[in-house]
Design a protein around this nucleic acid. Sequence first.
RNA 1: GCGCUCGUAGCUCAGCGGAUAGAGCAACGGACUUCUAAUCCGUCGGUCGCAGGUUCGAAUCCUGCCGGGCGCGCCA
Length: 559
Amino acid sequence: MNFEALLAARLQPALAATAGTPVDPAVRRSPHADYQSGAALPLARTSAKAPNGKGGKGPRDIAADVIAKADFVGLATAEVSGPGFINLTVQDDVIAAAVRELAGDERLGVAPVAKPQRVLVDYSAPNAAKELTVGHLRSTVIGDAAVRVLEWLGHDVMRANHLGDWGTSFGMIIEYAIRFGQEHDVYRAARIAFDTDDEFRESARRRVVLLQAGDPETRAVWRRLLDRTKTDFLAAYERLGVTLTAADFAGESAYQDQLDSVVAELDDKGLLVASDGALCVFPAGFRGRDGGPLPLIVRKSDGGYGYATTDLAALRHRTTELRADRLLYVVGAPQSTHFAMVFAVAQDAGWLPGTVRAEHVAFGSILGEDGRMFRSRSGDSVKLAEVLDEAVARAAVRNGDPAIAAAVGVGAIKYADLSGDRRGNYVFDWDRMLAQIGNTGPYLQYAYARIQSILHRAGDFAPGVVIGEPAERALALELCAFEPVITGVAESLDLHRLAGYLYSLAASFSTFYEHCPVLKAAAGVRESRLTLCLATGRTLGKGLDLLGIQTPQRLGSGS
RNA sequence: GCGCUCGUAGCUCAGCGGAUAGAGCAACGGACUUCUAAUCCGUCGGUCGCAGGUUCGAAUCCUGCCGGGCGCGCCA
């Protein structure tokens, strides 16, 4: 259901007739009515300037004209308000019918897209030499929610987990593993050796060369280390409720045999410039510290390849071989310049035609309560597993069932990540994210659980909606707003708008719950309220599912 | 220095050119013979960083400052 679109469609002919030209109906939700249109306001100026129209009409007169010409029959009522707004009030019976339909519709009034796109979502992408840390949380959680939303809308979504499995850090851990016969959890130790021991550092560098040259022993160790971390990652994804699978791993190593060809193709197109021994592309519009052109280095002076080349190879593969229509890179904001340059070079090289959208879905950092980068007391980055453990332990205080505690704890962390504008930084705060009131995971899960409890007790009933109490009306109207939110999020990838909507829906439900007894209501009213519960439960359930958050049937210690 | 980004209530944040800028937390005051009170209702709290500009209308768009974060040639 999309009342905004329906109302706009009714308004459009009247506005066009009044203005003599098509006008944006500008229909929005409003605190003064269900919806409002501000379209008459700018029209007043045009009218006043009309050649012979002495004085012209004021915005209120114009709004009245539009209302007189518009046909709202069977949908809404309209009235002029304030300086010239058109307040629109949807008829109760229309809202009721819409909710009735929603309650019985698996898709909750959201139709699959008419033209599915092939969307490739590049997310999570941890360095396979290390453990997962909170640093990987945002890309993983945001990317997976984006995948879920796009997929549910009917798009052909391809997940890509661009694992760091080839760089210097792998040289370090392979060298360390071979020397000390230890193959698990060696990154920290290897890093220390690399930073403090010149001889080790040299060996690690040689090890990268051996790896890239295909040395059998090196490759064997590499393969074992990689398999081990992949297994660990998959376990973490499972625990997080992230849909990435083994089939989605597409690490840097996968593009190694394409790097020469990337450089060759850039050369063919005359984009390559030798500079200080390196091969570079200088896309237009990028300036460096000294004001000079900023290079994207595609081959280092030592002949090796860096991440820029790998990113270009991956992009080319995704548009030419995988035929993606839209590329999403869910990567931290600090890399925005890098991606802008990669996209610019890819365009120049013809790998990114105008028909394909490439977007850097950037996000900010997770901060500690001191406002600085979130780290453990020892200054290390915090392991993801430890964060999840603590969240679950905290949730377990109120939830005896381990499965429910896990759903609440993990859900709280994910929701905290998704409920704010992804571009901004956010402060990691246990108490806030696990609070049972406010815009939190637990609050939404609680609302969902209460609904399930009612529905369970109610048993079968004949759906139908009659709007009575203000709380019923407010809830019903909120339910009808799901569709525009979802379609908007698929476009903007602002998951926090979905989160905000769900919070607002849950809050409307809580008010309804307080003011409108369901099970004890009179016949007729009872069925209507149960239908509202059903529609709300389904919407909350689907919305949270799209965010990747579980919805237990029951919360608490039981009974 | 250049670029990107952020600056909204004491705190954490919404606010996608429209009316009197909204939530939660905190503070204070109410509501449990009632479907989970893990909730709800109310009160208090704001020169939307500053100054200009565009507009009938600006927290929102533009410009310039101030302040924080990040980035700026062989790490990813």
